[in-house]
Structures are given as structure tokens and as C-alpha cells.
Design a protein around this nucleic acid. Structure first.
Lengths: 159, 159
DNA sequence: TCTTGACCTCAACTTTACATGAGGTTTTAC
DNA sequence: GTAAAACCTCATGTAAAGTTGAGGTCAAGA
């Protein structure tokens, strides 16, 4: 007997294939995220994955964060602050979001600076000297956990 | 006999070590950039690299571009539009800059959108549906060359 | 029931962007 | 003129973020 959700085509849990299709990522990527602890699943008797619906939110978050250049390990660290047991509340997400706000602000500022001054800055040669703010590869990260941390904005870790 | 520049500690060409120190990258990275065609050098009798001073500008450009998530192959393509023979003029850099402007604008907009709406968008679940603009992984790239091209903003190529 | 498509694990491969080390040569500084 | 520091090439290694494939199991529809 199907629930009303199921009759409406909405099952209470999702298979990998469903999540892959709906989140726009590959099945292997989902497996990979699971090995890295970014998402988790229950299993059926037959050992197949069944995801709670909030996995879609998590995966969306992962992709968006990756898109702004944040490494999976850092995303994992952030996601680890969400309750693993139940669907995170809005407040949980908001807290996580706040933790990243300073970092996102920094990235934005850098990008804006790059965009606004690329002509002048490169043209005048200031990119070639050490003091140019665009060239300074380090900056502060919002205290995520304890103490100050370093952020290499390129492709490295936040830690 | 040294030139006045040399007497002032400014030699007309730079060794790898010098470039590495001044540009804040490793020697092996410079070698690597050279194999990928992002920079080039003359050689001494003894086969050691000697760089023209504009290599500093190029390397600075490379790092900044990488920082905003652009892949080396794309950076190489952009740098290939600069004159290889002589030091690029300000206009050369400006042209290159203009070619990237739309892309940088897009990235900025995405980042801003992410920052501004992370709370609401994630909290309300809109990140989990397909229509959310933050989740749309494709967008247009400023015509760099001929015809429209696709941009996967994550870590993939611009092409 | 039975078959076909979706899943499972695990190992091996891929790409990007370098780093490291061996073994040998050049420059520079005294 | 010699020794140390810097450089050279080439091969191999590394980390991140997956992908691909083999060999086998599960589940849903006719």
C-alpha cells in the first residue's frame, strides 16, 4: 500500500539513481561523497542506499560551495556541523551559512577587485609587485572552530 | 660592465630563482608553466633560463586567474593572445582583460547571490530544486573566439 | 517466475597542477 | 681557481575529485 506521497510520485526515501538525476550529479560522485562523509544513507535489506530527502539540499550545498572554489574537505567539515541524525533545520543551515559569510565576502571582494582593476592594475604593472592586494595569496578566514586559520584562496585547503 | 639598472640591483633579465622569489611561486611551478606554454624564456650559453621582466606580470596574472577558479589551460589560451615576441603593451592586457570581463562578472554575480541568499535559499529549500539559479551549473561565456561556448563554473574547462 | 534495469563493492585509471629527487652542469663569489 | 649555490633534464610521486569496469546482487513489471 502506497502513501499519498508515493502516489504523488514522491517517495519518502530516494535511491542513488533518483538523487543523481534530481541533484544533477553522477552516481559515482554520490558514492564518493559518501566515502568522504559528506552525505550518508540508510540501506535496504538488499544493501541498496536509501537517502532522506534532505540529501538533495546537502548535495546542492556541496556543488554550490565547490563552485566558489571551496575544497571538499572543507565542505565536509562544514557539513559535519549539521545534525547527522535528522534533517537539519533552517537554523542549522543558517548557522553554517553565517560561518562562511566572511570567507564568501572575502572571495567576493577579491573577485570584484580583480574585475574592477584588471585593466589598470595589470596595465600599470601593479600586479607585478608584491604589495598589490590582488597578489596577496593569504587572508583571514572567519573563525571556523577555534583560533585563526589561514586561507589559501587558490585550490588549497582552508586549514 | 654593468648597466645602470644592474648597478641599481635591477638586471634586465631574471633567472628562475629570481622570478620564483619575486612572483611568489616555486621554481618547479615556473618550469611547469613553461612546459604548458604559459610563459617562455631565453637561455644563456649554459642553458639556464633568463626571463624578460614581463614574466612577472604574466605569472601574477596566472595566479590571480587561478584564484578565481580558472583552469591553466584556459589561462594559457588567454595568454596565447598576447604577443609572444615582445613585452605586451597595456592595450594587449586590456584586451585580454575585456575578454574575461563577462566571465568575471558572472562569477561575481554567482558568488554574490550565494552570499546574499545562502540563508534563505538553503533554509527554504530552493537550493534543492532545479530552477534555483544557484544550482544551474551552466552559463554563457563571453565570446572568446567564435560562437557561444559553455562554462562549467565548477572546476572544468571554459571550452 | 523471470528478466531487465538499477545497485552493490572494489580496484584501477584519469586529469590537473604541481613537488621531489637523482644525476649532472653553470654561475658566482671569494 | 675552486667551492658552494643555483640551475638543468627527466622520471616518478602526490592530492583532489572523481570515472570506469569487472563481477555479482536486487527489485519491479509482464
Amino acid at each position: 500500500m502506497k502513501t499519498r506521497l508515493e502516489q504523488a510520485g514522491i517517495s519518502p526515501t530516494l535511491s542513488v539513481g533518483e538523487v543523481a538525476r534530481r541533484a544533477g550529479v553522477s552516481v559515482s560522485a554520490l558514492h564518493f561523497y559518501e566515502t568522504k562523509g559528506l552525505i550518508s544513507s540508510d540501506r535496504t535489506q538488499g544493501n541498496q542506499r536509501r537517502y532522506a530527502r534532505d540529501v538533495l539540499r546537502r548535495v546542492a550545498f556541496i556543488r554550490v560551495a565547490q563552485r566558489v572554489g571551496i575544497a571538499l574537505t572543507d565542505i565536509a567539515a562544514a557539513l559535519a556541523t549539521l545534525p547527522a541524525t535528522a534533517a537539519p533545520t533552517r537554523a542549522d543551515w543558517a548557522r553554517l551559512s553565517a560561518a562562511w559569510r566572511a570567507d564568501l565576502d572575502e572571495r567576493m571582494a577579491q573577485l570584484k577587485k580583480l574585475r574592477d582593476t584588471l585593466d589598470d592594475c595589470i596595465g600599470c604593472g601593479c600586479l607585478s609587485i608584491d604589495r598589490c592586494r590582488l597578489r596577496n595569496p593569504y587572508d583571514k578566514l572567519a573563525g571556523q572552530g577555534a583560533g585563526p586559520q589561514r586561507l589559501w584562496v587558490g585550490r588549497r585547503s582552508l586549514n
